[in-house]
């Protein structure tokens, strides 16, 4: 059971000047947390939109748990299986109350009326929001930006997806909000949800993802474990991409004769490695 891209190409119409996706093949295992990195126009978003069948391949196949996204009959099942978090998901809020907005997804995928209350409350709790009667009855437009994003996420979680495709879920949030949402993503991944996330921040990807997909000009350049991708900064640099801050320190220290041992890519790992570093039996640098 996994997400399989088999020789997927996508073009915008027959006269499009370029291919948005070019012969992309990869397998994303269920339960994993994959980060997609690449420049604007590299095909990241197009790739993501293929996962829940918003776009279907011009040629090739996308299989989600064995379901072909090109297959019209399977569309509803795939949409239920894959939650899609668009950029600025709070911009899709529309209903009069928070409750109605969160219930929109389940209602359209066949949930029963009497189950709705428990579904809505459960999905809010998963995002660490207390579903008070006051909140549920308020208008989503009266909430703060960070709250709105959580409500929008709850609306997607309410469909109980097994896979979340997220297009820059942290964009436009303040540092605190970014940390909170990032933590929530990690929590959801720990609960067993497969996450595929586009991000421009290598540090944030490094913190949560276990795999990385590198895209450039519609092609999948590399797909591998985080530590492997980030341990080859020259390759990324050629594509105009960066490595996490922690890895930069790792390489810079190495250049100056301080070998921290195993490769690190998060600040926590870096701190631990520096703390554990011994020079000739003496603690610290």
């Amino acid at each position: 059971m996994s997400i399989v891209f088999d020789q997927v190409s996508y073009t915008y119409g027959p006269n499009a000047p370029y291919q948005a996706l070019n012969q992309v093949s990869c397998t994303i295992e269920l339960g994993s947390f994959s980060g997609i990195i690449g420049h604007t126009g590299s095909g990241k978003s197009t790739f993501l939109e293929h996962i829940n069948g918003l776009k279907t391949p011009s040629s090739g196949k996308v299989l989600i748990n064995g379901l072909d996204t090109s297959n019209k009959e399977d569309k509803k099942d795939i949409r239920k299986l894959v939650g899609f978090v668009a950029q600025n998901p709070e911009h899709q809020l529309f209903a009069e109350t928070v409750f109605d907005d969160i219930a929109f997804g389940p209602l359209h995928t066949g949930a029963k009326e009497e189950e709705l209350t428990s579904i809505v409350e459960k999905s809010l709790r998963r995002l660490e929001v207390e579903p008070t009667a006051e909140l549920l009855a308020s208008s989503p437009f009266d909430l703060s930006g960070g709250q709105q994003r959580r409500i929008a996420l709850a609306g997607i979680l309410a469909m109980e997806p097994q896979i979340l495709a997220m297009d820059e879920p942290l964009a436009g949030l303040d540092p605190q909000g970014r940390q909170q949402v990032l933590k929530l993503c990690q929590k959801l991944n720990n609960e067993g949800i497969t996450i595929v996330m586009i991000s421009h921040s290598m540090d944030e990807i490094a913190e949560v993802a276990d795999h990385i997909i590198v895209m450039n000009k519609g092609e999948l350049i590399e797909h591998g474990r985080v530590e492997k991708i980030f341990s080859e900064p020259e390759k990324l640099k050629r594509l105009g991409l960066d490595i996490p801050e922690a890895s930069k320190y790792y390489f810079e220290l190495k250049k100056r004769g301080v070998d921290l041992g195993d490769f690190v890519y998060t600040l926590d790992q870096l701190a631990d490695a520096i703390a554990a570093y011994k020079v000739g039996g003496v603690d610290g640098i």
Binding site: E49, N52, L54, K76, R79, K80, V82, G83, F84, A86, P89, H91, Q92, L93, F94, A95, F104, G105, P106, L107, H108, T109, G155, I156, M159
Partner: peptide, 28 residues
């Protein structure tokens, strides 16, 4: 795109269902 990801089906259903589905587009 966002609303159809949440199960809204803009391509089938009867007239009343389709008209109702305009609300989640028009309001945002």
């Amino acid at each position: 795109k966002a609303q159809s990801s949440r199960g809204a089906d803009f391509e089938s259903g009867n007239l009343i269902e389709r008209v109702k589905l305009f609300i989640p587009i028009i309001v945002p």
